[in-house]
Design a protein around this nucleic acid. Sequence first.
DNA 1: TGCGCTTAGGTACACGTTTAACTAACGCGA
DNA 2: TCGCGTTAGTTAAACGTGTACCTAAGCGCA
Lengths: 331, 331
Amino acid sequence: MAATIKDIARRAGVSTATVSKVLNRKDSVIGDETRQKVLSLARELNYTPNSLARSLVTRKSHVIGIIVPDILNPYFTELVRSCDDAARLRGYTTLVCNSEGIAEIETAHLTSFGGHRVDGILLAASDVVPDTELLDALRIPVVCMDREIGPLAQLVGIVDTDYRSGAYQATRHLIEKGHTRIAFLSGAPHRSNTQIRLSGYKDALSEAGIAFDPDLIRCKEFQHRFGHQATLDLLDHTSFSAICCMNDMLAIGAMVALRERGKRVPEDCAVIGFDNIYLSPLLEHPLSTVDRRIAHSGRVATDALIDFLDDADRTLTAVTITPTVVSRTTT
Amino acid sequence: MAATIKDIARRAGVSTATVSKVLNRKDSVIGDETRQKVLSLARELNYTPNSLARSLVTRKSHVIGIIVPDILNPYFTELVRSCDDAARLRGYTTLVCNSEGIAEIETAHLTSFGGHRVDGILLAASDVVPDTELLDALRIPVVCMDREIGPLAQLVGIVDTDYRSGAYQATRHLIEKGHTRIAFLSGAPHRSNTQIRLSGYKDALSEAGIAFDPDLIRCKEFQHRFGHQATLDLLDHTSFSAICCMNDMLAIGAMVALRERGKRVPEDCAVIGFDNIYLSPLLEHPLSTVDRRIAHSGRVATDALIDFLDDADRTLTAVTITPTVVSRTTT
DNA sequence: TGCGCTTAGGTACACGTTTAACTAACGCGA
DNA sequence: TCGCGTTAGTTAAACGTGTACCTAAGCGCA
């Protein structure tokens, strides 16, 4: 069907090796006339190299696999987009998989990555613990983004966000606006993910001489729905004038709850989010939040991975991104 | 590195053909003992078939390529997610590319699809006209989703949304709520995409005996930003009590503008969107909109494509989805 | 005995590339 | 004349599978 190197070779009256050399710019040793003939035939037949065959022999697929829990989550959408852009810029293609935050699904995807011989793997934040045994067997370089992982030989990059600092800054921002009763919403309470943010929150409070009140804390999951439900619950059981949300979806949920109860934002209750997803400035009340530079972190992670793949012997890259508060209308 | 069929064959003392047969369940003709030996060795070496090699010989990659203008747009995020789910369910993997709505980029992606020997292509809505010449040369089955395309031999599926009906219903919904001055926001004015929706809008108006007023129409692009800007402009130049937006992002933009000008939704101005992206119920004012069954349409399109790929000679599938109004808080 | 069928598996090529190693022709200096 | 270095290619193997076709043994049966 599609033209192959053989077709070109036959018509040009040369061997496939010659064609291959010309097409790969390894043609220092090829005559000018032959080169031209091959090149023009390639164009004429509109030849496209079969990457399957090529990858098979070169043992490089120029594909990198990405695993996220759910691309519908705007944070991951944005992250994936930036990874994909960065990858393409360097001649790589991405294969994106949704793990649903379920270990078995992630494992299946990793296995499939192995079968497709991806050159590298990007692991985005998730609460499931990566199957290091499988990863080890796969021998494919891995970069983790805000994701805890055990010791792993082929871990070649780590890009983390300084959650403590982010939470600290968000809380401090609220305190500076005069708030003292500040609720705190986050994900799974036992994960370090949440613990570390909580410590940032506490630091800011104690620095300001405000007592920590456990009644103001609600930690369960990073979903919109929980932000809504927790806010309603807070409203019923305690008093506060601000909510510090550990991601933007929680903040969006909180704002719906506040409106349902007739509370104005920010007059009656201030809200700050975390992530700065691209939606946050677009909301009816553009959301104050903590910018964690999503696109930048995706780019950095991808570049680290590809640097490793392209340059022979490279060492582990570790970057931590410090987020900053962006104040909009909700605080 | 990774175990191959050869490794298994050697250890089992059989030929690679035998191993291949066992592993592919073509083993009616293989002895039970041999089968077990092969199977257990495969497990032991944790063998994963090399899909590159396999695809090379079978001429089936079990990959389908998807092109969307921009996955950051929630409509496309949701669409891609549902296509991916549907594809995996049937043993296919997806390769997602962003065209930015630029013809050259789309062409590059299509070429790359050819190189990767994808089995089928899913083309999502976009204003650029597909490169049918290239598509023709590629000889890869294509399914279009809400996308105009010229005659094309390997077009095997079309799933469209009845935009006219959607726009008609949205307008009618507004009229039933008592509105008579209804603004209309949509994308590129000359595209049939917008024209057809406009006709639905006009039909509803004339049916209700309301005169069409061109001053209430603003068509340019389907971006949040334009929704915001157009609403401000409308507010400055005319009067109206409702806005009919031809996608949800426009509606979100419109609502920001209304809030900036101190207008309450829906008391001072009602707003209806189109698409029913997953975000629309989550907004501070859960958005009334027209549900176009995004996930369903992705699934239908993907299934149509794979039906074609799996069953030998199938004919073109054409589905049109009729959207329905979902009334929430903004009308 | 000769024939055919069944069972169990092997042989060998193909898929489309890349690449190390080889060759053939030529020119040139000693 | 011989040897050597260039130049411009070619040959052949390899990557990991799938599969059409072959073989060989065993058995039943006329």
